[in-house]
Design a protein around this nucleic acid. Structure first.
Lengths: 187, 187
DNA sequence: CGCCGAGTTGAACTGAATCAAGAAACGTGG
DNA sequence: CCACGTTTCTTGATTCAGTTCAACTCGGCG
Protein backbone atom coordinates (compact mmCIF):
# COMPACT_ATOMS: atom_id res chain seq x y z
CA UNK A 1 0.00 0.00 0.00
CA UNK A 2 3.01 2.27 -0.06
CA UNK A 3 2.04 4.17 -3.17
CA UNK A 4 -1.40 4.67 -1.70
CA UNK A 5 -0.14 6.10 1.57
CA UNK A 6 2.26 8.28 -0.32
CA UNK A 7 -0.59 9.65 -2.40
CA UNK A 8 -2.69 10.66 0.59
CA UNK A 9 0.17 11.88 2.73
CA UNK A 10 -0.17 15.54 1.72
CA UNK A 11 -3.77 15.47 2.97
CA UNK A 12 -3.61 13.79 6.36
CA UNK A 13 -0.82 12.37 8.50
CA UNK A 14 -2.47 9.17 9.55
CA UNK A 15 -1.64 7.56 12.86
CA UNK A 16 -0.28 4.00 12.78
CA UNK A 17 -3.69 2.97 14.04
CA UNK A 18 -5.48 4.66 11.17
CA UNK A 19 -3.07 3.28 8.62
CA UNK A 20 -3.58 -0.19 9.91
CA UNK A 21 -7.34 0.17 9.82
CA UNK A 22 -7.20 1.23 6.17
CA UNK A 23 -4.78 -1.54 5.28
CA UNK A 24 -7.18 -3.93 6.94
CA UNK A 25 -10.07 -3.18 4.61
CA UNK A 26 -8.14 -2.61 1.38
CA UNK A 27 -8.33 -5.34 -1.23
CA UNK A 28 -5.41 -5.85 -3.55
CA UNK A 29 -6.60 -6.48 -7.08
CA UNK A 30 -5.10 -7.06 -10.47
CA UNK A 31 -7.06 -7.14 -13.71
CA UNK A 32 -6.40 -7.39 -17.43
CA UNK A 33 -7.25 -4.77 -19.99
CA UNK A 34 -10.98 -4.32 -20.68
CA UNK A 35 -12.08 -5.64 -17.29
CA UNK A 36 -15.15 -3.83 -15.97
CA UNK A 37 -14.69 -2.52 -12.45
CA UNK A 38 -18.22 -1.14 -12.29
CA UNK A 39 -21.10 -2.35 -14.41
CA UNK A 40 -23.87 -0.22 -15.79
CA UNK A 41 -26.78 0.61 -13.47
CA UNK A 42 -25.26 -0.95 -10.40
CA UNK A 43 -24.46 0.56 -7.03
CA UNK A 44 -20.76 1.31 -6.70
CA UNK A 45 -19.66 -0.89 -3.82
CA UNK A 46 -16.03 0.08 -3.99
CA UNK A 47 -13.78 2.98 -4.67
CA UNK A 48 -10.47 2.10 -6.32
CA UNK A 49 -7.02 3.54 -6.03
CA UNK A 50 -4.89 2.94 -9.12
CA UNK A 51 -1.38 1.81 -8.31
CA UNK A 52 -0.60 1.20 -11.95
CA UNK A 53 -2.74 1.16 -15.05
CA UNK A 54 -5.46 3.24 -16.61
CA UNK A 55 -9.24 3.36 -16.29
CA UNK A 56 -12.07 5.04 -18.13
CA UNK A 57 -15.47 6.01 -16.77
CA UNK A 58 -18.12 6.28 -19.46
CA UNK A 59 -21.82 5.96 -20.16
CA UNK A 60 -24.22 5.72 -23.04
CA UNK A 61 -26.36 8.58 -24.14
CA UNK A 62 -28.70 7.94 -27.08
CA UNK A 63 -26.60 4.90 -27.94
CA UNK A 64 -23.42 6.95 -28.08
CA UNK A 65 -20.49 6.17 -25.85
CA UNK A 66 -19.42 9.20 -23.79
CA UNK A 67 -16.21 9.31 -21.79
CA UNK A 68 -16.90 10.90 -18.43
CA UNK A 69 -13.50 10.60 -16.81
CA UNK A 70 -10.02 9.18 -17.30
CA UNK A 71 -7.93 8.02 -14.35
CA UNK A 72 -4.32 6.91 -14.24
CA UNK A 73 -1.91 5.69 -11.58
CA UNK A 74 -2.18 7.70 -8.37
CA UNK A 75 -5.82 8.56 -9.04
CA UNK A 76 -8.96 7.26 -7.47
CA UNK A 77 -11.65 5.87 -9.69
CA UNK A 78 -15.21 4.66 -9.38
CA UNK A 79 -18.67 5.79 -10.25
CA UNK A 80 -18.38 8.66 -7.82
CA UNK A 81 -22.01 9.65 -7.89
CA UNK A 82 -23.09 6.07 -7.35
CA UNK A 83 -20.52 5.47 -4.64
CA UNK A 84 -21.45 8.57 -2.69
CA UNK A 85 -25.19 8.27 -3.06
CA UNK A 86 -25.27 4.45 -2.96
CA UNK A 87 -27.67 4.47 -5.87
CA UNK A 88 -27.35 2.79 -9.26
CA UNK A 89 -25.81 4.91 -11.96
CA UNK A 90 -25.40 4.50 -15.70
CA UNK A 91 -21.64 5.03 -15.48
CA UNK A 92 -19.39 2.10 -16.33
CA UNK A 93 -15.75 1.88 -15.25
CA UNK A 94 -13.48 -0.13 -17.49
CA UNK A 95 -9.73 -0.67 -17.63
CA UNK A 96 -7.87 0.57 -20.66
CA UNK A 97 -4.70 -1.14 -19.54
CA UNK A 98 -3.92 -4.06 -17.26
CA UNK A 99 -3.92 -2.54 -13.79
CA UNK A 100 -2.96 -3.05 -10.18
CA UNK A 101 -5.52 -1.59 -7.80
CA UNK A 102 -6.50 -1.15 -4.21
CA UNK A 103 -10.22 -1.39 -3.57
CA UNK A 104 -12.03 0.09 -0.58
CA UNK A 105 -15.51 -1.29 0.07
CA UNK A 106 -18.13 1.28 0.93
CA UNK A 107 -19.59 -0.52 3.94
CA UNK A 108 -16.22 -1.07 5.57
CA UNK A 109 -15.16 2.48 4.88
CA UNK A 110 -18.30 3.67 6.66
CA UNK A 111 -17.26 1.74 9.72
CA UNK A 112 -13.82 3.31 9.65
CA UNK A 113 -15.36 6.75 9.24
CA UNK A 114 -17.21 6.05 12.44
CA UNK A 115 -14.29 4.74 14.40
CA UNK A 116 -11.49 6.96 13.16
CA UNK A 117 -12.00 10.67 13.01
CA UNK A 118 -8.81 11.01 10.97
CA UNK A 119 -10.16 8.73 8.26
CA UNK A 120 -13.36 10.71 8.08
CA UNK A 121 -11.15 13.72 7.54
CA UNK A 122 -9.27 11.94 4.80
CA UNK A 123 -12.61 11.22 3.15
CA UNK A 124 -13.64 14.83 3.39
CA UNK A 125 -10.39 16.07 1.90
CA UNK A 126 -10.39 13.57 -0.93
CA UNK A 127 -13.88 14.58 -1.91
CA UNK A 128 -12.90 18.23 -1.65
CA UNK A 129 -10.16 17.57 -4.17
CA UNK A 130 -12.73 15.89 -6.34
CA UNK A 131 -15.00 18.94 -6.34
CA UNK A 132 -12.13 21.21 -7.26
CA UNK A 133 -11.09 19.02 -10.17
CA UNK A 134 -14.63 18.66 -11.40
CA UNK A 135 -15.27 22.38 -11.15
CA UNK A 136 -12.18 23.08 -13.23
CA UNK A 137 -13.36 20.64 -15.84
CA UNK A 138 -16.81 22.21 -15.77
CA UNK A 139 -15.43 25.73 -16.22
CA UNK A 140 -13.44 24.52 -19.16
CA UNK A 141 -16.50 23.08 -20.83
CA UNK A 142 -18.77 25.97 -19.98
CA UNK A 143 -17.71 28.60 -22.48
CA UNK A 144 -14.68 27.31 -24.33
CA UNK A 145 -14.21 26.23 -27.91
CA UNK A 146 -13.16 22.74 -28.91
CA UNK A 147 -9.63 24.00 -29.50
CA UNK A 148 -9.37 25.61 -26.07
CA UNK A 149 -10.55 22.45 -24.38
CA UNK A 150 -8.02 20.38 -26.25
CA UNK A 151 -5.24 22.77 -25.32
CA UNK A 152 -6.20 22.62 -21.66
CA UNK A 153 -6.01 18.86 -21.78
CA UNK A 154 -2.61 19.04 -23.44
CA UNK A 155 -1.41 21.37 -20.74
CA UNK A 156 -2.69 19.34 -17.80
CA UNK A 157 -2.71 15.73 -18.99
CA UNK A 158 -0.49 15.49 -22.02
CA UNK A 159 0.53 11.87 -21.43
CA UNK A 160 -3.04 10.61 -21.51
CA UNK A 161 -3.27 11.46 -25.17
CA UNK A 162 -0.71 8.80 -26.01
CA UNK A 163 -2.47 6.12 -24.01
CA UNK A 164 -6.13 6.67 -24.84
CA UNK A 165 -7.74 6.23 -28.28
CA UNK A 166 -8.74 9.43 -30.00
CA UNK A 167 -12.47 8.77 -29.94
CA UNK A 168 -12.46 8.43 -26.17
CA UNK A 169 -10.50 11.64 -25.74
CA UNK A 170 -12.90 13.40 -28.08
CA UNK A 171 -16.03 12.54 -26.10
CA UNK A 172 -14.15 13.38 -22.89
CA UNK A 173 -13.73 16.86 -24.35
CA UNK A 174 -17.31 16.99 -25.54
CA UNK A 175 -16.55 16.94 -29.25
CA UNK A 176 -16.60 14.38 -32.06
CA UNK A 177 -13.65 12.31 -33.08
CA UNK A 178 -13.53 13.96 -36.50
CA UNK A 179 -13.31 17.42 -35.00
CA UNK A 180 -10.53 16.38 -32.64
CA UNK A 181 -8.62 14.79 -35.48
CA UNK A 182 -8.80 18.04 -37.42
CA UNK A 183 -7.94 20.20 -34.44
CA UNK A 184 -4.81 18.40 -33.51
CA UNK A 185 -3.13 18.45 -36.87
CA UNK A 186 -2.87 21.71 -35.96
CA UNK A 187 -3.92 25.20 -35.43
CA UNK B 1 -30.50 28.91 13.14
CA UNK B 2 -33.58 26.71 12.97
CA UNK B 3 -33.81 26.65 9.19
CA UNK B 4 -30.14 25.79 9.05
CA UNK B 5 -30.41 22.85 11.41
CA UNK B 6 -33.47 21.67 9.58
CA UNK B 7 -31.57 21.72 6.31
CA UNK B 8 -28.70 19.57 7.58
CA UNK B 9 -30.83 17.22 9.66
CA UNK B 10 -31.13 14.57 6.93
CA UNK B 11 -27.34 14.32 6.85
CA UNK B 12 -26.28 14.15 10.48
CA UNK B 13 -28.10 14.11 13.78
CA UNK B 14 -25.94 16.53 15.66
CA UNK B 15 -25.53 16.25 19.40
CA UNK B 16 -26.53 19.27 21.51
CA UNK B 17 -22.82 19.86 21.93
CA UNK B 18 -22.18 19.93 18.21
CA UNK B 19 -25.15 22.17 17.57
CA UNK B 20 -23.96 24.60 20.14
CA UNK B 21 -20.47 24.65 18.68
CA UNK B 22 -21.87 25.48 15.24
CA UNK B 23 -24.19 28.12 16.64
CA UNK B 24 -21.17 29.59 18.38
CA UNK B 25 -19.26 30.31 15.18
CA UNK B 26 -22.17 31.21 12.90
CA UNK B 27 -22.59 34.88 12.04
CA UNK B 28 -26.03 36.20 11.34
CA UNK B 29 -26.00 38.55 8.38
CA UNK B 30 -28.45 40.55 6.37
CA UNK B 31 -27.63 42.36 3.15
CA UNK B 32 -29.44 44.33 0.46
CA UNK B 33 -29.70 43.35 -3.17
CA UNK B 34 -26.45 43.62 -5.14
CA UNK B 35 -24.21 43.23 -2.12
CA UNK B 36 -21.04 41.27 -2.90
CA UNK B 37 -20.44 38.39 -0.52
CA UNK B 38 -17.18 37.42 -2.21
CA UNK B 39 -15.05 39.74 -4.26
CA UNK B 40 -13.07 38.78 -7.32
CA UNK B 41 -9.65 37.19 -6.77
CA UNK B 42 -9.95 36.93 -3.02
CA UNK B 43 -9.76 33.91 -0.76
CA UNK B 44 -13.21 32.80 0.34
CA UNK B 45 -13.12 33.20 4.12
CA UNK B 46 -16.68 32.13 4.68
CA UNK B 47 -19.26 29.74 3.45
CA UNK B 48 -22.84 31.02 3.58
CA UNK B 49 -26.12 29.36 4.23
CA UNK B 50 -29.07 31.19 2.71
CA UNK B 51 -32.02 31.48 5.05
CA UNK B 52 -33.88 33.70 2.65
CA UNK B 53 -32.89 35.42 -0.55
CA UNK B 54 -30.98 34.59 -3.71
CA UNK B 55 -27.32 34.67 -4.72
CA UNK B 56 -25.40 34.35 -7.95
CA UNK B 57 -21.84 33.15 -8.42
CA UNK B 58 -20.24 34.43 -11.60
CA UNK B 59 -16.96 35.36 -13.22
CA UNK B 60 -15.62 37.18 -16.21
CA UNK B 61 -14.19 35.40 -19.18
CA UNK B 62 -12.88 37.58 -22.03
CA UNK B 63 -14.88 40.45 -20.57
CA UNK B 64 -18.10 38.45 -20.67
CA UNK B 65 -20.08 37.80 -17.51
CA UNK B 66 -20.68 34.09 -16.96
CA UNK B 67 -23.06 32.75 -14.34
CA UNK B 68 -21.46 29.81 -12.59
CA UNK B 69 -24.11 28.99 -10.04
CA UNK B 70 -27.42 30.16 -8.62
CA UNK B 71 -28.33 29.57 -4.99
CA UNK B 72 -31.61 30.16 -3.19
CA UNK B 73 -32.91 29.73 0.35
CA UNK B 74 -31.81 26.45 1.88
CA UNK B 75 -28.66 26.32 -0.24
CA UNK B 76 -25.06 26.97 0.65
CA UNK B 77 -23.15 29.50 -1.35
CA UNK B 78 -19.59 30.70 -1.66
CA UNK B 79 -16.70 30.44 -4.04
CA UNK B 80 -16.44 26.72 -3.37
CA UNK B 81 -13.12 26.22 -5.07
CA UNK B 82 -11.62 29.16 -3.24
CA UNK B 83 -13.13 28.16 0.09
CA UNK B 84 -11.89 24.58 -0.12
CA UNK B 85 -8.45 25.35 -1.49
CA UNK B 86 -8.01 28.63 0.41
CA UNK B 87 -6.71 30.22 -2.72
CA UNK B 88 -7.94 33.31 -4.58
CA UNK B 89 -10.45 32.66 -7.32
CA UNK B 90 -12.01 34.78 -10.03
CA UNK B 91 -15.52 33.89 -8.88
CA UNK B 92 -17.68 36.66 -7.43
CA UNK B 93 -20.73 36.01 -5.28
CA UNK B 94 -23.42 38.65 -5.39
CA UNK B 95 -26.95 38.86 -4.02
CA UNK B 96 -29.80 39.10 -6.50
CA UNK B 97 -32.29 39.77 -3.72
CA UNK B 98 -32.04 41.14 -0.20
CA UNK B 99 -31.03 38.12 1.87
CA UNK B 100 -30.72 36.75 5.36
CA UNK B 101 -27.67 34.53 5.78
CA UNK B 102 -25.63 32.51 8.18
CA UNK B 103 -21.90 32.73 7.62
CA UNK B 104 -19.35 30.14 8.75
CA UNK B 105 -15.74 31.32 8.83
CA UNK B 106 -13.22 28.89 7.43
CA UNK B 107 -10.74 29.11 10.31
CA UNK B 108 -13.35 28.53 12.98
CA UNK B 109 -14.86 25.68 11.04
CA UNK B 110 -11.44 24.05 10.89
CA UNK B 111 -11.28 24.15 14.66
CA UNK B 112 -14.69 22.54 14.93
CA UNK B 113 -13.66 19.87 12.44
CA UNK B 114 -10.84 19.07 14.79
CA UNK B 115 -12.84 19.02 17.96
CA UNK B 116 -16.07 17.46 16.77
CA UNK B 117 -15.98 14.34 14.70
CA UNK B 118 -19.65 14.76 13.89
CA UNK B 119 -19.05 18.18 12.35
CA UNK B 120 -16.24 16.81 10.22
CA UNK B 121 -18.77 14.26 9.03
CA UNK B 122 -21.26 16.98 8.27
CA UNK B 123 -18.59 18.70 6.21
CA UNK B 124 -17.84 15.51 4.33
CA UNK B 125 -21.50 14.88 3.55
CA UNK B 126 -22.19 18.44 2.46
CA UNK B 127 -19.29 18.32 0.04
CA UNK B 128 -20.45 14.93 -1.19
CA UNK B 129 -23.77 16.50 -2.04
CA UNK B 130 -21.90 19.23 -3.81
CA UNK B 131 -20.03 16.77 -6.02
CA UNK B 132 -23.23 14.99 -6.93
CA UNK B 133 -24.95 18.23 -7.92
CA UNK B 134 -21.98 19.44 -9.89
CA UNK B 135 -21.62 16.13 -11.68
CA UNK B 136 -25.26 16.25 -12.71
CA UNK B 137 -24.78 19.74 -14.04
CA UNK B 138 -21.65 18.64 -15.86
CA UNK B 139 -23.39 15.68 -17.46
CA UNK B 140 -26.12 17.97 -18.61
CA UNK B 141 -23.67 20.30 -20.28
CA UNK B 142 -21.49 17.56 -21.72
CA UNK B 143 -23.53 16.37 -24.68
CA UNK B 144 -26.89 18.11 -24.54
CA UNK B 145 -28.44 20.73 -26.79
CA UNK B 146 -29.44 24.17 -25.57
CA UNK B 147 -33.06 23.04 -25.51
CA UNK B 148 -32.33 19.98 -23.41
CA UNK B 149 -30.37 22.03 -20.90
CA UNK B 150 -33.19 24.51 -20.61
CA UNK B 151 -35.71 21.74 -20.08
CA UNK B 152 -33.59 20.20 -17.36
CA UNK B 153 -33.50 23.53 -15.58
CA UNK B 154 -37.26 23.87 -15.91
CA UNK B 155 -37.69 20.43 -14.42
CA UNK B 156 -35.36 20.91 -11.48
CA UNK B 157 -35.41 24.63 -10.73
CA UNK B 158 -38.48 26.09 -12.37
CA UNK B 159 -38.93 28.88 -9.82
CA UNK B 160 -35.46 30.35 -10.44
CA UNK B 161 -36.53 31.38 -13.91
CA UNK B 162 -38.99 33.87 -12.49
CA UNK B 163 -36.45 35.40 -10.15
CA UNK B 164 -33.32 35.68 -12.28
CA UNK B 165 -32.89 37.88 -15.37
CA UNK B 166 -32.78 36.00 -18.66
CA UNK B 167 -29.20 36.85 -19.50
CA UNK B 168 -27.94 35.33 -16.26
CA UNK B 169 -29.91 32.15 -16.81
CA UNK B 170 -28.57 31.95 -20.34
CA UNK B 171 -24.92 32.01 -19.35
CA UNK B 172 -25.71 29.58 -16.54
CA UNK B 173 -26.88 27.21 -19.26
CA UNK B 174 -23.91 28.00 -21.45
CA UNK B 175 -25.84 29.76 -24.22
CA UNK B 176 -26.51 33.31 -25.31
CA UNK B 177 -29.44 35.36 -24.17
CA UNK B 178 -30.85 35.50 -27.69
CA UNK B 179 -30.85 31.73 -28.03
CA UNK B 180 -32.58 31.29 -24.70
CA UNK B 181 -35.16 33.86 -25.64
CA UNK B 182 -35.94 31.95 -28.82
CA UNK B 183 -35.95 28.57 -27.12
CA UNK B 184 -38.39 29.41 -24.45
CA UNK B 185 -41.09 30.83 -26.62
CA UNK B 186 -41.27 27.46 -27.47
CA UNK B 187 -40.20 24.65 -29.67
C1' DC C 1 -42.71 61.97 -20.55
C1' DG C 2 -38.72 60.10 -21.89
C1' DC C 3 -35.17 57.14 -20.79
C1' DC C 4 -33.17 52.70 -19.50
C1' DG C 5 -32.63 47.95 -18.63
C1' DA C 6 -34.59 43.62 -20.07
C1' DG C 7 -36.34 40.89 -23.56
C1' DT C 8 -37.47 39.86 -28.48
C1' DT C 9 -36.83 39.38 -33.36
C1' DG C 10 -34.32 39.17 -37.76
C1' DA C 11 -30.52 38.14 -41.02
C1' DA C 12 -26.00 36.66 -41.85
C1' DC C 13 -22.31 33.93 -40.34
C1' DT C 14 -19.59 30.08 -38.29
C1' DG C 15 -17.83 26.24 -35.46
C1' DA C 16 -18.75 21.84 -35.06
C1' DA C 17 -21.74 17.72 -36.25
C1' DT C 18 -22.97 14.45 -39.51
C1' DC C 19 -22.45 11.35 -43.22
C1' DA C 20 -19.45 8.94 -46.06
C1' DA C 21 -15.11 7.10 -47.82
C1' DG C 22 -10.56 5.81 -47.32
C1' DA C 23 -5.93 5.05 -45.17
C1' DA C 24 -3.18 3.43 -41.32
C1' DA C 25 -2.19 0.64 -37.47
C1' DC C 26 -2.80 -3.29 -34.86
C1' DG C 27 -3.14 -8.02 -33.20
C1' DT C 28 -4.34 -12.77 -33.90
C1' DG C 29 -4.21 -17.11 -36.00
C1' DG C 30 -2.48 -19.82 -39.53
C1' DC D 1 6.20 -13.61 -39.82
C1' DC D 2 2.90 -12.72 -43.01
C1' DA D 3 -2.10 -12.07 -44.25
C1' DC D 4 -6.50 -10.67 -43.04
C1' DG D 5 -9.95 -8.48 -40.41
C1' DT D 6 -10.94 -5.13 -37.05
C1' DT D 7 -10.28 -1.03 -34.90
C1' DT D 8 -8.45 3.64 -35.11
C1' DC D 9 -7.63 7.75 -37.50
C1' DT D 10 -7.98 11.06 -41.37
C1' DT D 11 -10.14 13.68 -44.96
C1' DG D 12 -13.91 15.71 -47.63
C1' DA D 13 -18.60 17.59 -48.50
C1' DT D 14 -22.72 19.06 -46.51
C1' DT D 15 -25.82 20.54 -42.91
C1' DC D 16 -27.26 22.70 -38.75
C1' DA D 17 -27.48 24.58 -34.03
C1' DG D 18 -26.20 28.39 -31.99
C1' DT D 19 -23.57 32.99 -32.25
C1' DT D 20 -23.17 37.61 -33.56
C1' DC D 21 -24.63 42.03 -34.61
C1' DA D 22 -28.16 45.09 -34.96
C1' DA D 23 -32.58 47.02 -34.53
C1' DC D 24 -36.76 47.18 -32.29
C1' DT D 25 -40.47 46.50 -28.33
C1' DC D 26 -42.03 46.67 -23.85
C1' DG D 27 -42.67 47.91 -19.08
C1' DG D 28 -41.36 50.46 -15.42
C1' DC D 29 -40.04 54.58 -12.76
C1' DG D 30 -37.51 59.04 -11.84
Amino acid sequence: MDTFFQAIEPLVQLSPDGRQALSGIAERLEFPKNHQLIRQDTVGQRIYFIESGLARTYYYKDGKDITDWLSAEGDFVGSIVSFLSQRPDRRIVELLEPSRLWAFPYAKLEILYDRHHEIERLGRLLISQGVIQLQQRFDNLHFSTALERYQTLMRTNATLIQRVPLGMIASYLGITQETLSRIRLHR
